[in-house]
Structure formats: C-alpha cells, structure tokens
Design a protein around this nucleic acid. Sequence first.
DNA 1: AATGAATGAGCGTTCATTCAT
DNA 2: TATGAATGAACGCTCATTCAT
Lengths: 189, 189, 189, 189
Amino acid sequence: MGQTEGKHGSILRATLELISEHGFHGTSMSKVAKRAGVSAGIIYHYFSNKDELINELYIGVKRNFSEMIIKRLDESQSLRKQIRELVKSTIEVSVRRPEEMLFMEQFLQSPYNRPQIQETVNTYYEPIMNVFKKAKQEQIIKPLPDPVIFALTLDVAVSLAKQHDAGTLQMDDVLIEKVTEACWEAIRQ
Amino acid sequence: MGQTEGKHGSILRATLELISEHGFHGTSMSKVAKRAGVSAGIIYHYFSNKDELINELYIGVKRNFSEMIIKRLDESQSLRKQIRELVKSTIEVSVRRPEEMLFMEQFLQSPYNRPQIQETVNTYYEPIMNVFKKAKQEQIIKPLPDPVIFALTLDVAVSLAKQHDAGTLQMDDVLIEKVTEACWEAIRQ
Amino acid sequence: MGQTEGKHGSILRATLELISEHGFHGTSMSKVAKRAGVSAGIIYHYFSNKDELINELYIGVKRNFSEMIIKRLDESQSLRKQIRELVKSTIEVSVRRPEEMLFMEQFLQSPYNRPQIQETVNTYYEPIMNVFKKAKQEQIIKPLPDPVIFALTLDVAVSLAKQHDAGTLQMDDVLIEKVTEACWEAIRQ
Amino acid sequence: MGQTEGKHGSILRATLELISEHGFHGTSMSKVAKRAGVSAGIIYHYFSNKDELINELYIGVKRNFSEMIIKRLDESQSLRKQIRELVKSTIEVSVRRPEEMLFMEQFLQSPYNRPQIQETVNTYYEPIMNVFKKAKQEQIIKPLPDPVIFALTLDVAVSLAKQHDAGTLQMDDVLIEKVTEACWEAIRQ
DNA sequence: AATGAATGAGCGTTCATTCAT
DNA sequence: TATGAATGAACGCTCATTCAT
C-alpha cells in the first residue's frame, strides 16, 4: 500500500490491477486483499460487498476519465475544433491509461453493469454531451441520436485504444490525427 | 431440448442463452446442463471441458454471422455499394440475433479469448476483408490500417446493435440508412 | 486387443497395465475399456463390477505366480535345496514380471483386499507351504509360525524385486545367491 | 477435535484415521473435514491441497517413528545388541501404532510417493543407517547393499507388525525375541 | 480500525454403472 | 455379444462473506 494512499484507495487500486490483468473471474476478494496488503475482512469495512467495491471503482474511474477529457476542452474554440479535440483526447487518455480503459470495457459487458450505474456516470459526461448538443443545434453535425454520435466518435476512439493496447495496431500522433479527421467526417453535416 | 436438435446442439444453445443473459460468471456447467435438459456429466461427452464448449460455441456463432453477412454480398455491384451493404448487414444481423451478438461481445473481453481463436474466425471474414482491401487498392477509401477501417464501420454497427438491444436506441430502417451513410463518409477517400 | 486373446483377457490385461502404471486411483473403467479396445459397457458383460474385475485379476495373477514358482520345485531334492530354490524363484519371477508384482503389492494395501480373497489364493500356495511344513516337521528350520517364516523368506524376496524394479537396487545372479543364503540362515534351525 | 489439539492437528489425525481404515480411495477431503469436525473449506487454509496434506502427514509420521526408534538406541552397547534392539523397536513401535504403520505402508504404494519425499524422510533414519554402516565396516554383518540389509531386518519387522494388526499373527514378547534372533542371523557375518 | 480463521454453497470435472439400440 | 450415450453422486477445490478477537 502506498504511503499517501489509504486502505480504501489501495483496495480500489488492487481491484483495478487484478481485473485489468486477469478479468473479473480471476479477481477474488482474497486476491484483492493480498494485492492491497490488507486483511480480507477489512475490505468489508470500506465496501459493503464485492458489488459495491466494483461499482465504486467503476464510477471513480469513469469520473477520472471524464475529468481528464473535459480538462482539455476549450470553449473559446469553434465547436468543430472542440469535437475533434474530444476524439483526440479520448484516444490519448485511453492509450495512456490502459488498465482503467480495459477495466471499463470489461465492466460494460459484465453483470455488474446496471442502468442506474450508467445514469450516474453519464452525469460526468454532460459537459462533453453539451458540446455535441450545441453542434447539433447549430447544424454543424448531423441530427443523429446521441448514442449514434457517440458510437461514431468516442466509442471508435476507445475501440482503437484497445487495439493499440493489444498490440494489433500502433496509434501514433499521425494516425490519431487521421482518425480524428475520419470521425469528424462521419458526423459532420 | 428441441426435437430436431441433438444434445450437442442443445448444450450449445443453453450456453449461448445463459451467457447472453447472465454473463460468463453466471454460467456454470450445472446451469448449462439444467437449461439444456441433460445431466451434468454428459456435457463432457460432447466437449472435453468448459473451454472447448465455449470456444466451439464462439467459432460457430462467428461463422454463422459471417455467412449471413457474406450471403448478402453482390460482387457485381460497385465497391461503394458493397461496403455500405456490409455495414447495413452487420447492423441488421446483429439486431436480429441479439443473443449471439451479446455472447460475442462478452467473449472478446473474457479470458477465453486467445489469439489463436481470433486467427481461426478471421478466416471466415476474409471475403469481407477483401472488399475493403480492393477499395483501398482502388483508392475509393482512405489508406488507413484495417483495424481502423473496421472500427469506423463494422464495430460501429455492432455498437449500435448493442444499444438497440439494451433499449437505449431504436434502430429502424431510416436510421440504419443514415448510419450507413455516416460510416461511409468516415472512410471514403 | 491381441488376436488370440479374447475380450475377457484383453480387459484383464488392460487393467493390469493401467494399475501397474498409474495405480488404482488412475485406473477408471473407461480407461480400461479404451486400453483394451472395447466399449465401456461390455466390461459389465464379463465382470459384474469393478470389484470383481480386480479380484479376478488378482486371483489370476497370483495363480500364475504360484504356478511359475511351483513348476521349478523338485521334490527329489533336499528340503534345504527346495527352500532355497523357492526364495530364488520368487525373486526371479518377481523381477521378470514387474507389472504383476507391482499390481499384487498394490492390491494388498487396497480396500479390494479381503480375507476371503487371501483364503482363495492361499490354496495355490499350498505346495509351497508344504515344503516349509515338512521342513518344520523335520526340524530343519525353526519352529516359527508360517507368517513369520514367509516374512523372512518370500516377503523379503518380493521386497527386493520391488527395489530392483524401482532402480534402487541391482539384483544380479550373484546377489540373488547371497540373499538366498541370508534368508536360509534366518530360518534354519 | 480434541481440546488441546488445534485444527491443523485434528485434520492430520482425521486423515490418518481414514486412510488407515479405508485407504486413500476412501478418504475424500469432505470426509476428512467431517471426521475432523471442521468445514471442508478450512482444510485449504492449513494445507494448500490434498497432496500437501498427505505429504505433511507422511513426513510427520515418519519422523515420529524414527524418533521413537532412535530414542531407544544405546550407543554404549555392542553393535550386535544395537542392531537387535533396532529390529525389536521397529516391531514394537509398529505394533503399538498400527494406524501410522498402515498409513505409511499405503503411502509407499500410492501415487503420492515421490523420490523427493523419500529423500526427506531418509534423513530422519540416518542414525539408524549409521549403526548398520558401522557394523558393515567392522565386518560384523554381511557386506550386502543397504536395501538388502533393511529388507532382511526392518522390512521384516514391519511386515510382521502388519500381520499382527490384521489378526493373522500374534506377536508377543517371546515371538519378538525369536524374530529378532532370526533377523540377526540373516545378516550376521 | 483491523485481523485472518472459519463457513458452506458452488464450481468444473470424473466416475462406476445402466440401458436403449 | 456389443456399443457408447447417459446418469447423478462424489470429487478436490474456491469463493464471498462473517465474526471472534
């Protein structure tokens, strides 16, 4: 356990590492305890059960990601530039933080994922959604439903980061630029 | 168990249903047996272990999907039309067979997924890959790496089908047409 | 399955091989069937269950061993020579047939071993026992109980054959002669 | 579970009892748990698997036996007396502790027995081996290989204890004395 | 706040045996 | 005679969770 990080944090970190390494199946509570350097019992002091531990981890990771992406937004720029920056940021953040990215992807397909959780994390993405919303209002991008717009941009970004992490694709700055351009063309009016 | 379907088939079907409903974690061999209407032991007569059962299921589902998509290909048409047809087919097939689609998505993030398996299933998709290959050669689409082209088209298609199945998006013919157009614009030269 | 050997025989032979190779624990009925080149079900035509298969095998092996040893007995010789020949034969036969020897040893320590079985096989050893009996009557050997006499001679012989088979002892003709002498001196009057 | 004996000990004891009563095959982990008065899961807190449980039990029993026998050794006595005492001790200890003796005999024929285990337990028997070694050097006993010397003495002792336990032989003090004499004569120079 | 021993249900898998063909 | 599909209990083992300390 790190010195500055409390037990609460070290448990979350251990869970993240184990799930990104071995998946949900290979992540037992006792392994989490061992990795975090704490006893098995104390986990239940900080988290009422495994579900809550994983949900809390997911929500935290999602918040981190959204914050890192939003931090780069510059509202003074054109909506076109802002949207391109969102795609680029999503790729870069996902490539730089493969553990979190892989964990989020696993979470989505797991039984831990429930609508209510997604409602919660969606609030973190509101500033991002607002950019697209405005662009739709100003008829800069196509009048497609939000999930379609996301699928054509941010989901593509994550998909590529995943392939980069798996080693089946090398995402360098030039390629990122080209992908950003392609995503933009998919949704531009 | 269906009347025409043998035990081998009913075990595969039960596995597919359970994984698409409850994920890998919630799919024990005894639940598979119960759902398939067979004894627990007989599964090991048809499949040497859980790994093989799931791998065989995945390979079969992937083959089915690829066949359904390839069947619709019409080589007499322009490459542009063929590519748009591929996107459309992928969405439609994925929407029509949500269980298989969800299972494939779960498989990808699971520890059952191994490079060798992907090598096998990739051979089923060669006719599809060839369409994009030719389009790249004829400079109809952008000279991006294959995984990027796929992320911008087929992966988007599956992503939308998943949202349709989850109820967060209604994919009708009109929307499918619009999405197909958007995907095309993402990759066109 | 050999050509001359019937299924009954090939099942017994397969059982012997498997038990001597992998012990009782590693010898399932289905492995026996596979090794014997027959179906699993047919075993139960020739043997009512696993117990009977193994008991019959044991009794047969014991009879073979006793016959090979008895065949060498020459009643025209002195009892001293006959007894020494018994020890020597037991070592040699046990060394020459390690599978049978190992199977018999395993059987003795297994739950398959029941007093009634030993009563049966003891009848095969009566000619051998008679030699010792006469020697006791003629006061050539010590008046010790039969099991003690056997422990000091035939059991020693098997014990040494076992070590020879395990590779922890090399039994050559010279050593066999010396051991025979030692056993004789243990029981001589 | 005894009051003074911890769970670790009660699991070992239950395992010993069950194996001596019903053999390895009849000794499942759940039966061990039931006999020890503990839950099935806790066994794996004390032993990493069944192999380790049984190996640890074997090594412990072997050490106990060797200590009980060695304790009786009196180096001030003649080698002849010491060797006779070893045979006598082995019989008496084996007769007094039939469970341990039967367990050790079963272990030897089982797949749990591995060369490395025997190397470990052999170190416990070094003081005993040294007695025979010296006797060979001083030419008091025959120059036979160690395994042969043991087969003619200690193995005979165990073999007789086994028969005593099975009820096919009554080992009293008089008979023990006679057997000791016979073993001595087998190996004396 | 913290430990780690303890539980017992459930896991994937094997097995001796049966039986329709 | 002969097959091999089928059963279901039992196996070794893991797990999320609890609780005395």
